[in-house]
Simulated scan of single mutants.
Amino acid sequence: MKKAEKLPERPDTPCVAVCSTTFDEICRGCGRSVVEVAHWVSMAPADKERVWKRILAEGYPRRNK
């Protein structure tokens, strides 16, 4: 990602308080891996944006309705 490229406005975190990684390594609420959740606060903005793009393409975050 180019340094001059502006990142889209996003919420601070994809977390939707529907946390579940009981049966696999991916949260059923936000779509992040256990490692991504654990390191989110220290990730660089460009790394967070890559995660956002992936989870949005996969249909996350998911909220209980």
Rank of each mutant, 00 (worst) to 15 (best):
M1D: 06
A38D: 14
K48P: 03
V51D: 08
V16P: 10
T22L: 15
E9I: 03
K6M: 13
K48V: 03
W52R: 01
K6D: 08
E58P: 04
S20Y: 05
A57S: 11
A44Y: 09
C19S: 03
K6A: 14
F23S: 09
W52H: 02
K65T: 07
D24G: 10
A57N: 05
M43V: 01
P14I: 03
L7F: 05
S33V: 02
E25T: 02
L56T: 09
E49F: 10
L7T: 00
N64C: 13
V41P: 09
S20W: 07
V34N: 05
D12H: 10
D47E: 15
R54D: 14
M1I: 13
E9M: 06
W40H: 04
T22E: 13
E25P: 07
P11H: 02
C27K: 00
P45Q: 07
L56S: 03
E5K: 15
A4D: 14
V18F: 11
M43A: 06
C15N: 04
A57P: 05
C30F: 02
C19W: 03
K3P: 08
A46E: 14
T21Q: 11
E49N: 12
E9D: 12
I55P: 00
A44T: 01
R28H: 03
K6I: 11
P11V: 02
P8T: 02
K6N: 12
R28L: 10
A57D: 09
D24Y: 02
P45I: 02
V16K: 09
D24T: 00
D47I: 07
A4Q: 12
K65R: 14
R50D: 09
L56N: 05
T13K: 06
K2I: 12
M43F: 09
P8V: 07
V18N: 15
P61N: 07
P14W: 04
E58L: 04
A17I: 07
P11T: 01
K6E: 10
V51E: 08
Y60E: 02
E36V: 03
P61L: 09
V51W: 02
V51H: 01
K2D: 08
P61H: 04
C15E: 01
I26F: 00
R50Y: 04
V37G: 00
A46G: 11
D47G: 04
R54E: 12
W40Q: 05
K6V: 14
V37Q: 07
P45K: 08
P61I: 00
S20F: 06
V18G: 13
V41A: 11
W52K: 01
R62T: 08
P45E: 13
E9V: 03
P8D: 10
P11W: 07
I26C: 01
R63K: 15
A57Y: 01
E9F: 04
I26Q: 05
V37P: 06
K48Y: 02
R50E: 11
A38S: 14
R63E: 13
R28Y: 00
C19N: 08
K2T: 06
C15Y: 00
P8A: 11
P61A: 07
E25Y: 06
K65M: 11
R28C: 06
R50P: 05
S33E: 02
T13L: 13
L56G: 04
P8K: 02
